[in-house]
Nucleic acid binder design. Structure first.
Lengths: 155, 155
DNA sequence: TAGGACCTTGGAGTGCACTCCAAGCAAGGG
DNA sequence: CCCTTGCTTGGAGTGCACTCCAAGGTCCTA
């Protein structure tokens, strides 16, 4: 299977996942996780996973014949991406917006790219802010270290 | 006035301020700012400034003869530090703890230093997280860019 | 000395992101 | 069959960090 003439399968997967070195708890094919398994893998609570689904932050999650959620590896990948976006401080509403764009299909590629580029700019300036703050912290820590040495000399 | 035998004045100032290149709106001596001036300088609202004082995040703020707040350059410096700490995501309760230590005097230098060192560690790992996230964002942005080029070739 | 902008307080309200609850259904072991 | 554990739902509750309100006092300029 080559990827020369078009990229439909790759695109579908890429829509959703982070394309990490595929380190899933179970191989594709018998990837049907219960909510508590996913909670254990992701560090989110079952409450939060249900809430994510309710607000539209998850693609529709598969159900067992009795109505219980069965998450897939793709769901795990999506949650990994959501986790990354959450780390950036992106509001949940914006993540929902991104999820909507994914659901709407490939014609939203451009808007998705723009959203991620904006996020990227936000993350970069956040990093700069934190580095500035680090300098202030270092300065004050040095001051306390100096004061400590001075009081030792005095005694 | 030399600083050889001890460091009381410097220490007092350093307790509070960020020791920036002293770029205050007014020179020391006639630094008596109203709450709305401070709001304008810091970007905080007057509400927030009053709230900071109520919860103990400000050293006692001076008052005019009629009871209105008059902030000093030192207050501005303290607010600059608080602003930096806030950027790190430090909870307000922890900042209040730090403010208490400052009020308690020099015998808390060590605990203050530890608190800042912990914060520093937090900031460093936060920066690392954000850099990882940046890599993920770049990867996905590249994907969308590639898809865009592919669709142009196809048309 | 009048008017408008600004200040004061305690307490209540807001928005976000969860977090939990009650009541009930379902699956597996002894 | 019972018991425990886990899952379901809508809706209510929590904690944080503000944010605003009402009612009244103050400051400045004309």
């Amino acid at each position: 299977m080559t990827l020369i003439e078009s990229t439909p399968v790759t695109a579908e997967a890429e829509d959703i996942c982070v394309r990490a070195p595929s380190t899933h708890p179970r191989p594709d094919g018998d990837d049907r996780y219960t909510i508590s398994e996913v909670a254990a893998f992701t560090g989110l609570t079952a409450h939060t996973l249900r809430w994510y689904e309710r607000i539209g932050l998850m693609p529709h999650v598969d159900r067992s014949h009795t109505g219980q959620r069965r998450f897939t590896n793709q769901d795990l990948d999506w949650l990994a991406l959501v986790g990354k976006l959450r780390l950036t401080g992106m509001p949940v509403a914006d993540m929902v917006r991104y999820a909507e764009l994914v659901r709407e299909g490939e014609h939203t590629f451009e808007e998705r790219q723009e959203l991620l580029q904006q996020t990227r700019r936000d993350v970069r300036s956040r990093i700069t802010e934190l580095q500035d703050t680090l300098a202030v912290l270092d300065h004050k820590i040095d001051f306390y270290a100096g004061a400590h040495r001075a009081s030792e000399r005095a005694s």
